[in-house]
């Protein structure tokens, strides 16, 4: 089937965060999700939030390589969004039924993984934020943007790479301490 091949290619592109694939999936599914949310007591902002979260779930799934094409991307996105929105409504104590306009596939397992990752990344985000400047920018530049120490030293106004490295080390020790405290606590919680 041509369509199946297309979808497979899209997912491969998505896993690599290729702009074109992300755009195509976004374009083909967003309006459907927006009407789902708006018809069920949500706003456009809610729709954007929920849809983007579903895109992250799809992205993680595509990356894990375990995305078997037993359903269309559309069906999967719809199912995840429906699930996420029901949960959001429940948290706001507004119980309601959502009429299905699309077929739904079970997504429980994926949602569990997603929630765990959300917690982990949320914790990392908070930990990095809590370091304050210049640590936050310094560590982001080195570990996330993967820039080299010379460049960083220049940009942050250190006299040489050695000084920047010392500062980075101090920041890293602080971050790792926060990270491993949470990491160990998180493990015992589950």
């Amino acid at each position: 089937m041509k369509q199946e091949g297309n979808e497979k290619a899209l997912l491969l592109g998505l896993a690599r965060n290729e702009r074109k694939a992300v755009e195509t999936i976004y374009k083909e599914n967003y309006n459907m999700v927006q009407s789902l949310i708006i018809n069920n007591n949500g706003s456009t902002d809610d729709a954007k939030d929920i849809f983007q979260e579903a895109m992250i779930v799809l992205y993680e799934k595509a990356r894990s390589g375990s995305f078997e094409l037993n359903c269309q991307i559309k069906t999967y996105v719809y199912s995840v969004c429906r699930r996420l929105w029901l949960k959001r409504l429940q948290q706001a104590n507004r119980f309601m039924e959502i009429a299905n306009i699309e077929t739904v596939v079970p997504v429980d397992e994926d949602m569990e993984g997603h929630e765990k990752r959300n917690r982990e990344f949320g914790m990392m985000e908070k930990a990095i934020d809590s370091l304050g400047e210049p640590c936050k920018s310094l560590l982001e530049a080195y570990y996330l943007q993967k820039r080299n120490m010379q460049e960083i030293a220049f940009q942050f106004g250190y006299t040489n790479a050695e000084n920047a490295k010392n500062q980075k080390y101090k920041c890293l020790v602080r971050l790792k301490k926060i990270f491993f405290t949470h990491y160990k606590n998180g493990d015992s919680d589950e």
């Binding site: 965060n17 992300v22 982990e120 990344f121």
Partner: peptide, 19 residues
């Protein structure tokens, strides 16, 4: 964990840009 976090962040930025 840092790498995956970085990619996750990048993807979220990409989503916002696309939107």
């Amino acid at each position: 964990q840092m790498n995956r976090f970085g990619e996750w962040q990048k993807f979220r930025t990409a989503l916002n840009e696309v939107h």
